[in-house]
Structure formats: structure tokens, C-alpha cells
Design a protein around this nucleic acid. Sequence first.
DNA 1: CTGTTAGCGCATTCAA
DNA 2: TTGAATGCGCTAACAG
Lengths: 340, 340
Amino acid sequence: MAVTMKDIARNCGLSSGSVSQVIRNPDNPRFSPATRKLILETAARLDYHQNSLSCALRTSKTRLIGLMLPWNEPEVMDNIERIVSENGYKLLIQFTAHPRPGMEQAALQSFLSWNVEGIIWEPSSLENASCLPLLERIHKEKRPLILLERGVNGMDFPLVRTDYTPALNVAVSHLKDQHYRKVVFAVSKSSAPIMKTQCEVVRGACRRMGLAFHTCQLDVASPDLSGQIRHLLSGEKKGDTAYICFSWLALNFIEEMEALGLSAPDDLGLVLYSDLLLGGRYRFSEIVRPKLTVVRSVCSILAESAIRFLLSEIRHDDPRGLPESTHYAELFINQSTKRN
Amino acid sequence: MAVTMKDIARNCGLSSGSVSQVIRNPDNPRFSPATRKLILETAARLDYHQNSLSCALRTSKTRLIGLMLPWNEPEVMDNIERIVSENGYKLLIQFTAHPRPGMEQAALQSFLSWNVEGIIWEPSSLENASCLPLLERIHKEKRPLILLERGVNGMDFPLVRTDYTPALNVAVSHLKDQHYRKVVFAVSKSSAPIMKTQCEVVRGACRRMGLAFHTCQLDVASPDLSGQIRHLLSGEKKGDTAYICFSWLALNFIEEMEALGLSAPDDLGLVLYSDLLLGGRYRFSEIVRPKLTVVRSVCSILAESAIRFLLSEIRHDDPRGLPESTHYAELFINQSTKRN
DNA sequence: CTGTTAGCGCATTCAA
DNA sequence: TTGAATGCGCTAACAG
């Protein structure tokens, strides 16, 4: 097996306790320079390396951070990993894209069993009743936990989220300026629950501005997604309607529009909700044609502020600091709704 | 602090050793049903959960797997995470997209210090001299390690890789059929070293087919990337040249083509090398316009075979099994090179 | 200046 | 059928 401190101690004719001291603090004035040199040299010679397990068990410092996301969002994931890594921590990962019941609870439990020093969690949905007792415990033990995007019931953990409200309001007003008369908010069935608030924001904005409003939940998993969309698109009066599509759904709309010979912005408008940064440089809304008007949040900043706050919580037990930090999404107007 | 076995033992008036036995094996016939029930019930009542650290320290079984990738490739990452998670393992993550010297070595060392049961590593470049001693040790200790895409010098770890050769040959032949007379292979400077082999494959194919050939390394980080590409594109005779672009670079070509009023496939051809699956459903080559002819490998299968092999290596110490597994990339012809 | 000791929480062996 | 003792590798307090 691997070289341990005991091995070094034996080689030097010292005790493992002394070895520990010197290795943890090579400039320790408690030991004579000769001893220190001897210990460090034999450590190097034997190719000694710390055993993180025992070290963590002993000190309760694991330098581990648990990250649970509903899917692999590169913009969030990459940033968090980079910063975590720069600070000497390692990431324990769990995605919840394919949720089994109790999965998030189990993952939290597993994080705790590894004694992670902090957790960043973007809950995959709004209801997490099964996680409540666990969260209660996390709260009581003061283990730092940052929630992303969605809070959990009554629990008051720091929440780092994006507020889409202002941008959505501006978007609707923009659509009215462009003489659209009706707005359809399209989401996938699975993401519908977490889009409810935003949906209401748009509904409200439409009412105030005198636009008609509809929601539309599509079954993304169905083989007949095309059919659903085609049906939707072909039933409209030309030029009247603007669609707000959540995430990738916009792509399906574009494809069906091509098939039906419809084009944005004239025959209909298309607004992307939640852009994605791809390959670290390119935005989804910019690489498709037509380029999409988009309500976009900068996830990288969100991620960065979450992880930095987590790290500061870990370092000093500062009870102060942000209880909730909100980033605002912005509207970027592009070809898909810009009528001359 | 958290509830330990000792707490349960005290509550039951038993010893922690007995508690351990029963919890590890609830049907243990060595203990009376009454005792077993008592222990399990108080465990539940006190909300006991294993401490992974001490358990791992004791048994040398961490159920941890180290994953090191040169960047967050969702198609690889997601698949590995899912399978790992389904098998009760957790993933320790390290990306090496922003390499500091010694970073990969440090990450490997860190994996070892956590006693991970296996490692999947896609080396970020071809030279890893600094990692050799470590790899030697990993090899000696028989700790399962699977390499992705690139081997490391003389070390013979199992290697799961994509072979682009046949597809590249077919691609060149296709380009000749379409009456292109020259092929330019464009990569970013940073990825150039690992593209060397493929570059030679294309060079060879061009020679055999009587096509001219050039390579071209672009500085992706430079603010004047547009300028570099524009210069490249404007210097060519119309209709003669097909560009093979590595990964996202294709997008920069598309943008410059739009700016210059050039269009594929007529004014020039465009072949994408290494497609990306986005959002789990959509291919980069299919969402841009023109749709791109692409040399594509199915990373998800690659990832899956790597992780499954790793898991099987972990479970039984089977020395047999694939020493090297090769997947073949395929050519998909699309609008960007298809002339009439 | 350096050594000893007592755990961290758990699993395992041996003894009762 | 159960308890006690030992040690995984390391740290920290204390003793010399």
C-alpha cells in the first residue's frame, strides 16, 4: 500500500507524531533544522503523499464541495469547478436530470456523509418535501448551503437567483411595438411547474398592454413533437403571434417554421427564454438563423457569486452577508422579432 | 455533531461493534431478531447515517471515481455521471480547460489521496512527462485507470478512443467528388498538438487524391480572430477550397463568410470536425446554417463504454478485457459541401 | 527539541 | 448471542 507517516517515522528513527508536525508545517521552529530536513527529504524520497481520508476524518476538514444541478449547465458547472479548484477544493457532483424519487434527498445525504464543507444546489423542482428534514439538519449544523434559482419552502438558505420579471415585461412591450397582437408562452411539460411564475408575469404584462395571451405545454419526449408544433403554427393568423420559447424548444419551432415556409419576424415572432452559452464562447441565440431575440441571464456571474459566497461562508463563520442575491435577466433584441 | 454507531449502541445498551454488524447486514443470523429490530429501529429513530469518511478509511472502499476532462463535454460528462450515480458511486471532478503547469499531475495525486476506486482521464495534451511517475505507481498498485482519446507515452492503460482516419479519408474523397481542388485544415493554436495525427491523415488523403493541402493554426484567443479568418477567406479563388474546421471554429468561419458575402457550398466548402451534442438533443452541425457536413463521433457511446469498463475493472480484478477500444467516427454529408 | 497518547467513526477478529 | 480490542492514517494536546 501507499507510504504513510509511520513509514517515514520508521525510516528516520522518529515518531509519526513528529513527522506529522513537520510535514504540516515545514518551518516549525519546534524542530531542529536537521530533523526537519531529514523528515522532508525522506518524505520526498519515499514519495509520501497525504491520505485525504484519514486527514479529513481527523480534522473534519474535507475540502470537498457538493454540487447538485438539474442538468449539466456548462456555464454554471465550468465556473464553479474552476473557482473551487483554484481554492484547493474538489467537487462532488450529482446531476438530477433524470429524476428518480428521493434522488435529491439521497444526494444531499451522500454529501453530508462525506462531510462536504459546503453545498450548492439547484433544486430540480419546486416541491422537495422529502428533503425538508435533511435541510433542517443542515441548517441546524450550520453547514453552508446555497440554493440556486429556487428556494425551498420555508427554509431560509441563501438564494442566488435570476429575476426575469423586468426583462419579460420589456419583452412584451417590445412585441407590442412590433405590432404582434398575441403572445404564446411555450414550455415543455416537464419544465412547466418551474416556469409558472414567469408565465404569470407574461400574462400580466399582456393584459396590461392589451395583448392576447396563451400558454402551451409541449411534450418534448413525444415522437410527435413536430406535429404538435406544426399544428400550433398553422392555426394562427399570419403576422399576429409571437412565441416565447423556453430553452431548446425554440429550435423545434425554427425547424417547423422552415418546413411550413414561415419566417420570422414577419409571419410570426420568436423570443428565446433562457439562452445557453456553448463552448464557452457562443450563444445559442446567435448561432441559429434567424438570430433570436432573447431574455437572457448571465449564468456565469450567477455561478460565480454563488460559489464565492459559499467559500466565504466556509472560511469564516460570518453570519452576515447576502441572504438573497438577485441577478437580472436582460432582453436582447434580434432579428427574430425585429420588423423593419 | 452527527449521530454515530456509538450513540446507537449507548441507546440500546449494546456495544458499537454489534451495531456495526447489524447495520451492515440486517439479516445477520448471529444476532437475535429482537436485538436486530432494536438496533435498526433506534438507528432510524436517531436518524443515523454512515460516515463515508471513516467507513472508507477502514475498508479502503470509497465508492469514488475521479474524472478529469480537458473541458466540460456534456455528452461525455452526463453519461459518465449518470452511470456512475446509478451504480452508487460518486464523481470527483477536475477540468483542465485552463491548464496550469502540473495541474493534471496534481489532480491525479488528489484523486489518489482520496483513494478513488477508479479514474477516467482524457489527457489535455500529448506530453505528460510530469505525470509518468504517478502513472507508474497507479499501474503498480493496479488502480483502474481508463484513458480517453489519447494514450500516454509508453504506459499501457486501457484506452478508449475515436478513430477519425476512415471518416477523414472518406471526407476528402467526398470533397474531391464535389470538385474542390484544395483542402485547408483549420485548428486553434491551442488544440494544434493533439490534432497533429488527424492533420497528417488529411494531408495523406489529399496527396493520394491529387488535392492541394494546407494547415492553418488560428489564434482563437486573439481579438482579431475575425481578421485572421477574413484574410484567409478573401485570398482564395472562388469555389476551389474546402475548409475543415475543428469544433467551434466552424462558427467563426460561418460568420466571416456571411460578412464577406460568401456562401457554402458554392464559394467554398465547410466541413466540421468533431460535432457537439447540445442540450442532449441537438447537434451543432444541424442547428447552424448552412447545415454542416461533419466528421462526427458519438461521444456518448465512448463515454459509456469507458465507464462501464472501469466499473467492471473495479468490481472483479479481471485482468482480461479490452486493452484498447476504438470507436469510429463517421462522415455525415450536409448542405455545406453538397453542390447541386 | 521530540515522543507519547488519545481519539476521529467504523469494521473485524477474537474472546466470552 | 454479544462485547472488547485493535487499527485504518492522521492530528493535536500534552508530557517529557
